[in-house]
Design a protein around this nucleic acid. Structure first.
Lengths: 350, 350
DNA sequence: TTGTAAGCGTTATCAG
DNA sequence: CTGATAACGCTTACAA
């Protein structure tokens, strides 16, 4: 039973005015209808007395827009700790959207048993979403199908660049430069890179930036220190670290391209009884749970909160401009190093 | 612009039938209307050709129920890692609900800027939720206001017991018993308890169960080993561990009442250069990210997935039984120990 | 078996 | 400023 909430009709009756007046007052519509301050107050009073809350479904139906934005997040794993970033972004997205009168519906392979790509489309279309935000879309067509529907689309972090939509991405260069400056300043010369793959430009750019920064410092990093990796996982970090430790001259510092990888790095180090930072310096990338590990990890922080804010701004712009083909704006946000306790000067033993 | 999706009318026209027929076919309604197999197929074909997806808002409006369930989660912190459980449950809730044709709208202090309690009510009421699930409601009135609206309410994990609603809770006893059996079996006698407070029965019961299990093993745990704590946080785990380490005869094993606490425990141990499990055995409670730490932690696993499933089942029952005052069913789920690598026999030195 | 018509709560329009 | 009225897309009696 939808227990009968008060309707705008009830409010109107109680305030002794017309439904139209109620509608105008309650959603500051820019109609040419003017309401006297006095009746205005009367309506507001009636609304709160009755605990009136507008029926979103009815509004959506009538207005032809739902004020709902879909957030499709990439996910391989149903375990929060293996994919923390989408959760974090989802939270920020929801909060930001709410401030502007929008709602987020979060959709992912974990939470929705999709038979195929069609189902995703159907679900979101059924909700009559006003637009869709993608976090690392898994294919072009996944994005394209919404563009084809004429819906505003915004892509985050790892866009399908072939599809021209507004994007919000993160530039790793500043953070990685700071990380290398810091390490070099502490006296490190033998710094290794542990990555999680190069399947997307965003991933390979972490390695590229690392290499650039290291040549800038004239470090002459040997090939065997550069491990691009194949996936972001604990197991991968563990494996790559062990490869490094088996080297004739292992590195004195590790730059690890994600927090998930670093879990594996720390495990390998722990098993080898190598202490951080005394015997090995470690810097991670992401700064999601880096601060919670032991020792608290120095990490390159990504501005997820701002990613969400910009994404919502872009999205609402897209919704407003309604058909007007907007330029595919590309917002790029910087990273920075957050220093904690996982680095130290290398031992001067060899 | 809500780009014109196909409507049921379009489908009807295309199939050359009435809107009524379309409705009947597309949602297997138990109406007494029979549709011939042939027209049935025709309608289905037309629907897929047009990419028809029903307008949820319109359905909601017409049916008088939204098929939306609110999930209000407790939250102090906006950081995922400090409050992993609500996220995990939210995901499971969404997945389970979807299988049964429901949608979850997740609401929390992090994601929604509520001025006061009223706003929460308003938001959910605006969505015309069919019911509300609470995870650790922060006050009686928070729950009561929805009960007063006549909405089905289900409480999870840490209910406000004073309000008679169906609940799904977790019984720690089995997991804690197994943990102590295991530790004792490995030769530990000096086992300490690190807790995160006793503000809710659920929290104090972890301590109670620990004490019971230890007396069952005739351990005679000294008072100073029993630290109920005041909050679930890294800092608290850190502080309590240091208290323990400062003791004349410190424990050889630590039972830690949550994963967040254990982060602080590991930090204290790491700083004190005490290795787990060689010099100190550690068992955590929750098993959220325990497996990702180093060493992988033996932990008491809570059945969050099943909590979500039962909660949805209870909720849908409540929605169906619609006014019929249902008995306040209380589902209690068991815990169990998941063994990993954070315990070992104590050193036989003293 | 199929078609018709009413109505869910809103907002917009248009004449008073 | 008010008051009717229509319409959004859908479901469901009820009539054909």
């Amino acid at each position: 039973m939808r227990s009968r909430s008060a309707t705008s009709n009830d409010v109107a009756r109680r305030a002794g005015v017309s439904r139209a007046a109620v509608s105008v007052v309650l959603n500051g519509s820019r109609s040419n209808v003017r309401v006297s301050e006095e009746t205005r107050q009367r309506i507001l009073a009636a609304a709160t007395e009755l605990g009136y809350s507008p029926d979103l479904a009815a509004q959506s139906l009538r207005r032809g827009q739902s004020r709902i934005v879909g957030y499709v997040r990439r996910s391989f794993s149903s375990i929060v700790y293996e994919q923390p970033i989408p959760y974090q972004i989802g939270t920020s997205l929801t909060r930001t959207a709410q401030k502007r009168g929008y709602h987020i519906i979060e959709v992912s392979a974990e939470t929705h048993a999709f038979q195929d790509r069609k189902d995703l489309l159907q679900l979101l279309l059924s909700h009559r979403v006003d637009g869709v935000i993608f976090d690392w879309p898994s294919s072009e067509s996944e994005v394209q199908q919404f563009v084809d529907e004429g819906l505003p689309v915004v892509q985050l972090i790892r866009p399908q660049f072939s599809i021209k939509t507004p994007c919000v991405t993160i530039d790793p260069s500043q953070g990685i430069n700071e990380a290398l400056d810091y390490l070099v300043h502490q006296g490190h010369r033998r710094i290794a890179f542990i990555g999680g793959g190069v399947s997307h430009p965003v991933d390979s750019s972490r390695l590229d930036n690392f290499v650039q920064a290291s040549t800038r410092h004239k470090l002459a990093i040997p090939e065997e220190y550069l491990l691009p990796g194949t996936q972001y996982s604990l197991a991968e970090g563990y494996r790559l670290t062990n490869t490094l430790l088996a080297l004739a001259t292992p590195p004195t510092a590790l730059f690890v391209a994600s927090d998930i990888l670093v879990l594996g790095v720390l495990r390998a180090l722990y098993q080898a009884r190598i202490r951080v930072p005394e015997e090995m310096s470690v810097i991670s990338y992401d700064d999601t749970f880096a601060a919670y590990l032991s020792p608290p990890l120095t990490s390159v922080s990504q501005p997820f909160e701002e990613v969400a804010e910009r994404a919502i701004a872009l999205m609402i712009e897209g919704i407003m401009s309604n058909g007007t083909v907007q330029e595919a704006i590309h917002v790029v946000l910087p990273t920075h190093l957050t220093m904690r306790e996982s680095t130290a000067s290398p031992r001067r033993k060899m």
